[in-house]
Amino acid sequence: MRKSADLFLFQLMLLLCALWGLQQVAIKLAAADIVPLLQVTLRSAIAAVLVGALLLWQGSWRGWLGSTWRGGLLAGTLFALEFFFIAQGLQYTSASHMAVFLYTAPIFSALGLALLLPSERLHRLQWLGVALCFAGIVLAFGGDGDWAELNRQMLLGDGLALLAGLSWGLTTVVVRGSRLSEAPPTLTLFYQLLVSFVLLLGYALASGPLAPISWTPVSISSLLLQAVVVSFLSYLAWYWLLRRYLASNLAVFSFMTPLFGVTFGVLILQESLSLAFVLGAALVMLGILLVSQHAWLRNRLQHWRAASN
Score class of each variant (00 low, 15 high):
G265H: 07
M285N: 09
A281Q: 00
L289E: 08
G287D: 05
L267Q: 09
G280R: 00
Q270T: 07
L275S: 03
V291A: 15
G265F: 05
G280A: 03
I268C: 13
G265C: 09
V278W: 03
E271W: 02
L286E: 13
F277S: 00
V291I: 04
M285I: 15
S292E: 13
G280M: 01
A281E: 00
I268M: 14
S272T: 09
S274I: 07
L286H: 08
L275R: 01
V284T: 13
I288K: 02
L289W: 14
L286M: 14
Q270N: 13
A281V: 00
A282K: 09
I288D: 13
L283I: 03
V291L: 11
L290S: 15
A276M: 13
L267E: 05
F277Q: 01
L279C: 08
G280Q: 03
M285A: 10
L269K: 14
S292F: 04
L273K: 13
S272A: 09
Q293M: 09
Q293R: 13
L267A: 02
L290W: 03
H294I: 08
V278N: 02
V291W: 02
M285E: 06
V278Y: 05
Q270K: 06
L273W: 01
E271H: 02
L279T: 04
L279W: 14
V284S: 10
A281D: 00
E271T: 02
L273Q: 05
S292D: 11
A281M: 02
L289T: 15
L289K: 04
V284A: 09
I268S: 06
L290I: 09
A282S: 14
A276Q: 12
V278Q: 04
Q293A: 13
S272M: 04
G287K: 09
I268V: 15
M285Q: 10
G265L: 13
V266W: 08
L267D: 04
M285P: 12
V291D: 08
V278M: 04
V266L: 09
I268K: 08
L273N: 06
L269D: 12
I288C: 15
L289Y: 11
L286Y: 14
E271F: 01
L269M: 05
L279P: 06
L267M: 11
H294P: 10
I288H: 06
G280L: 00
L279I: 07
S292Q: 14
G287M: 09
L269T: 07
Q270S: 11
G287A: 09
I268A: 06
G287E: 04
S292H: 07
F277H: 00
A282G: 10
A282R: 14
G287N: 12
G280D: 07
G287P: 06
V278K: 01
L267C: 04
H294E: 14
Q293D: 12
I288F: 12
L269I: 03
S272E: 11
V291N: 10
